[in-house]
Design a protein around this nucleic acid. Structure first.
Length: 185
DNA sequence: CGCCTTTGACCAGCGC
DNA sequence: GCGCTGGTCAAAGGCG
């Protein structure tokens, strides 16, 4: 737990050097209702050399506000995050952010497989559960539309990707080929 | 055929 | 102990 709980404004994490590693503080033990998660700088991230193209940018990515986050937690104030669910321990990095979008799925460059969907208490929208499809990657994410503001989508990531995004590789591969070609001279 | 979503069942933690 | 709830599993079916 490297995050200072008493730090008032949640500072944006430093810009990621690559899109393959998302900075995230550990949020265990369970966060308090007035404790805000840290936010990822998606504008910075999506303008990174990975060349991610995301239509959501045009709709405006909204950093989560402390109030909305608190309200969301208040709605689930009986919900304590279990330690990793079924498979026991979990000190995996976990962070959440909100986007204003008509689409629930944020194109973050990774491939996700949906493995569950549940109706959650105090929310008219179900929560969807996704896992990264990369065979060595165990990152999960939850996606839920806020009932208080139906234009907002809450996305919660758990874990850190141990591989580059596919889009990053797509972007870099022509460059690598060119470098290999030039290195012959 | 491979990969994906859907969906009901099951499991586990928590409060009462 | 029981019920509620969130999280996961896995079978079935769809799609390109």
């Amino acid at each position: 737990m490297e995050q200072q709980e008493e730090a008032p404004p949640p500072p944006l994490p430093p810009p990621p050097t690559t899109t393959s590693y998302l900075l995230a503080p550990s949020l265990d033990p369970p966060r308090q209702p007035d404790q805000v998660l840290s936010y990822i700088d998606w504008v910075n991230l999506l303008s990174s050399p990975s060349g991610l193209h995301n239509p959501l940018l045009s709709e405006g990515i909204s950093m989560a506000t402390e109030n909305l986050m608190a309200e969301d937690d208040m709605n689930n104030n009986k919900v304590k995050r279990r330690a990793g669910g079924r498979n026991g321990k979990s000190t995996r990095p976990r962070f959440a952010f909100q986007t204003r979008s008509a689409d629930d799925i944020l194109d973050d460059g990774f491939r996700w497989r949906k493995y569950g969907q549940k109706a959650v208490k105090n929310s008219i929208y179900p929560r969807s559960y996704y896992r990264c499809t990369h065979h060595t990657c165990n990152v999960k994410k939850q996606v839920q539309r806020l009932s208080k503001d139906t234009s907002m989508v809450m996305t919660t990531y758990e874990g850190i990707h141990n591989h580059p995004t596919e889009k990053l590789m797509e972007t870099l591969s022509p460059l690598l080929k060119q470098m290999q070609f030039l290195s012959r001279f």
